[in-house]
Structures are given as C-alpha cells and as structure tokens.
Simulated assay, not measured.
Amino acid sequence: MKIGCPKEIKAQEFRVGLTPAAAREAVAHGHEVMIETGAGAGAGFTDDDYLGVGAHIVDTAEEVFAKAGMIVKVKEPQAVERKRLREGQVLFTYLHLAPDPEQTRDLLDSGVTAIAYETVTDAAGGLPLLAPMSEVAGRLAPQVGAWALQKANGGRGVLMGGVPGVGPADVVVIGGGVVGTQAARVAAGMGADVTVLDRSLPRLRYLDDVYRGVFKTRYASADATAHLITTADLVIGAVLIPGAAAPKLVTKAQLSTMKRGAVIVDVAIDQGGCFETSHATTHENPIYEVDGVVHYCVANMPGAVARTSTIALGNATMPYMLALADKGWQAACRDDAHLLAGLNTHAGKLTNYAVGRALGIDVVSPSVIVKA
C-alpha cells in the first residue's frame, strides 16, 4: 500500500502523523511511504530522518493525497484537505465529528473511509489511541492554567502552590478519567489543593485507593459542581463521552458565581467543550474572557509539546496503521472489533452512532459495512 503523511496545516499544529520509526516499520512490511517535505520539522524530525528509513519525500500535500491509498494524519482534515479526499481512500487520524457537522458532511460527500483514532477501543473498554494525547493534555492543563492565572494574563494572580503563610490555588477537575487523573496528579504536584469530580463511584474509589489523599474526590452532582466552582481558582474540564459531544456542565449563568480572574481550562473542547461559554482557540491566541473568567480552550493542546506528543501517538497508532496497510481496512476491521469501532464514515455513509445522534444523521452499522 502507498501510505501518505501530509504536513499538518491547522494553526499552531506541530505534530506529524508518522514518525520515522513508524515509517521504518511500514517500509519493512513492504509498503511505500510518502512524506510531505517538512512534515516532521515541528516535532524535530528532518526529511533526511525519513529518507534514512526508506520513505520518499514529496514536494506537496496535493501529491500525497493524490497518490496515497491511506492518509495518516494527526488532526482532522481541514477544508482544503477534505476536498482532496476520495472514495476508496482510507483516512486514519483524529476526527472529533460530533461537534463538527461541516467536516462530517464533507467526509460523507468525499466517500472516504475515515477511521478515527478517538473511537478505536480496546479489550479493557479504553480508548488506546486517545489515551496518550489525553495524558499529554491532562498534564498540560495545570501548566497552562497556572500561566493563565498570572495577573498579566488576566488571571487572579494566584500561585498554584502558594508560599509559607499563603494558601495554594484551589483547583477543581471535572472528570476522573485519563485527562482528569493526569491533571489532578500534576496540579497536586505543583502544590495546589485539588478536588476531582466524577459520576462513577468505582472510579472515585480507584482514585482514592491509588492516590491516597494526594487529591480529594467528590461525586459529580450538579449541586457539588455548582458549589465547588464558586471557590475555585482553576477549573479543568476533563469530561469525555466517546465519540459524542461533551455535556455542558457549567452554564454561562454560573460564571457570575465564580471568582473574578478565575481560570477555566476546557480540555474537552475537541468534542465541543464542557462549559457553555467555551469556544475553540489556538496556541497563537489561547485565552479569552467571559464575565471576568479567563477561558483557555485550545483545541490541540498536545501540539504545544509536539515532539513528546508525536512520539507517544506514533507508539500507539503504529500497530493499527500496519494492520490497515498489511490486510486492507476491511480485513483489518473484520479481524479486530476494536479497530472497527474507529470506523466513522465509508462511501458516503456514517458508521458511528454517537456522531449520528449528535448530528441527526442516519447511521449504518459498521459491522454491516465491513461485511459488504
């Protein structure tokens, strides 16, 4: 198979879909790998790094899309990229379709077979291709929140760990999954007073057992959430419903109950965000203010640490990329129901039920598609 990797063109996105290590593996499996020139530069990989493992360097993204049978990316295809997709081609990348009807319609119109990293599952019920970026984003959230809390950036001027005689920042993390756990660990490590909210009692028990009071846990009732945000200096939104739009857990009206200069970091913004006042921002202009509350809603947070993120993502996606290339997408998905869960569109049909519910689009079962 011809595997193509174009340079990411989303604003301030420095990751790349294929590492040289992944390219080496694909070439060893007998596949042709095409990398757009400069695609790896933001993550610290040169064209020579790819040439050295047997990949080809091509001059333009147009050539990559025109010749490759499978496109491997990081972020969802932008409008100009979606015009280059075609039926019979496989797209393997993050998609986050539920809050993005325009992208969904373009993918359906193109006929491309789109497999989304974020909906591939595993035997333990996890999301193995989302997890590494969730870990990165979770660990980044207190870091960027601490920056936004600085007075010069519009925040309250509160130091996360405080100093002797002055208390630490009060941090609330909504969601105790991968993002929330990593965010809580780092925030607590910075010295903050951290509370994690979640609706799963087994998850809360797990966090209590494993972290033994490093941070506090609370059941995520509407009442508890409403109360805790009134005292918080930093609120981190870390809620995920796989494939679906994130629930709105803090309303605009509730912002008036928060401290002036408090900070919201919405890690769920890729799925539409879990605060009513959230809208996507970029690393270039990451923050804005609503009713005195600073919002950080960068939709590709891991892109800020592009080398770490690229290598972590490449480690996770490589086996699936090789299976798709070695067997073809249909056989690979027939052999692996967890990979099949990643199928979001094929030949003009939507194949993910959570996206269909969010956007009001009829869905065809992926198991029916893969058997056709």
Rank of each mutant, 00 (worst) to 15 (best):
G4C: 08
C5Q: 06
C5S: 09
E8H: 01
P20W: 02
A28G: 06
V33I: 08
T46P: 03
D48Y: 02
G52Y: 02
G54Q: 12
D59E: 15
F65G: 08
V74E: 01
A79F: 03
R82E: 11
Q89F: 15
H96K: 06
R105A: 14
G111D: 04
Y117M: 07
D122T: 10
P128Q: 12
V144K: 05
G145N: 05
A148Q: 04
V171T: 05
G180H: 01
G189M: 06
M190R: 00
D193G: 08
V194A: 07
L197W: 02
P202Y: 01
D209R: 15
F215T: 11
S221E: 10
A224D: 11
A245W: 05
L249S: 09
L249W: 00
V250C: 10
A253M: 08
V265R: 09
A268G: 07
G273D: 03
S278T: 13
E284R: 08
N285P: 03
V293N: 05
V298T: 12
M301G: 03
G303K: 11
I311F: 00
Y320K: 13
G328R: 06
A331S: 11
H338K: 12
G342D: 13
H346P: 03
A347H: 07
G360W: 04
I369D: 00
A372N: 10
